[in-house]
């Protein structure tokens, strides 16, 4: 009798505890099982975790400049010297319909003056990008790909890139040129084989 009373007193707590323990085991089981399944997936491939632009897909729409989460975009113009024609009349350096080939403001393509050039020998000029000034607008790239060898191209500077979980530029890129890449292919360079 006494025992029964005790049981009755205890029973609601026991039931609750029992339910709780059961659910805890179910929850734990679910967590472990899904974790295990996903872990099998996680180890299956080489890690493609960095964002990079495929220069052959890029259309230089200009969104790289405006849509990066950084105030000054992590996208920069790169230059493949081995592809460059070293032309005097450079489509990336001068505005179209340029009248005189000098560095006057009305003739220059780059809005921030990030492209500089140096005379090599007649008639060749070497072009260099100052990445600190570059805003990734892609104007020079457009000029170079439409009128030149396409040696200028846009790339994400991996040092500046914040490695967002979802790249804000990739989300608006009209040609889907931004994809995840592995560490070994952190850059898609044009003078690379």
């Amino acid at each position: 009798m006494e025992k029964k009373d005790k049981d009755q007193l205890k029973s609601p707590m026991d039931r609750r505890d029992f339910l709780r323990t059961c659910s805890a085991f179910v929850a734990g089981g679910v967590a472990v099982a899904s974790g295990g399944l996903l872990a099998a997936k996680a180890s299956a491939k080489e890690g493609e975790v960095f964002w990079q632009i495929d220069p052959y897909k890029c259309t230089q729409c200009g969104r790289c400049e405006t849509d990066c989460v950084l105030t000054v975009s992590a996208v920069k113009c790169f230059h493949a010297n081995k592809v460059c024609g070293y032309c005097d009349l450079c489509g990336g350096y001068y505005r179209p319909n340029v009248k005189e080939l000098n560095t006057a403001a009305e003739n220059m393509m780059c809005p921030t003056g990030a492209i500089t050039r140096e005379f090599v020998e007649e008639p060749y000029f070497e072009y260099t990008i100052d990445e600190d000034l570059c805003t990734g607008c892609g104007k020079c790239v457009k000029g170079c790909t439409s009128f030149g060898n396409g040696s200028l191209f846009l790339q994400i500077d991996q040092e500046k890139c914040q490695q967002c979980n979802e790249c804000a530029i990739a989300r608006v890129c009209p040609s889907d040129a931004i994809q995840r890449v592995s560490n070994a292919h952190a850059y898609k360079l044009k003078d690379h084989a």
Binding site: R95, P96, N97, K99, A104, A105, E106
Partner: peptide
């Protein structure tokens, strides 16, 4: 500037701006 011919003052203006 592109459509007009040589216009020194216009070019000067561009440079200043």
């Amino acid at each position: 500037n592109e459509t007009n011919g040589e216009n020194e003052s216009l070019q000067q203006q561009i440079r200043e701006l």
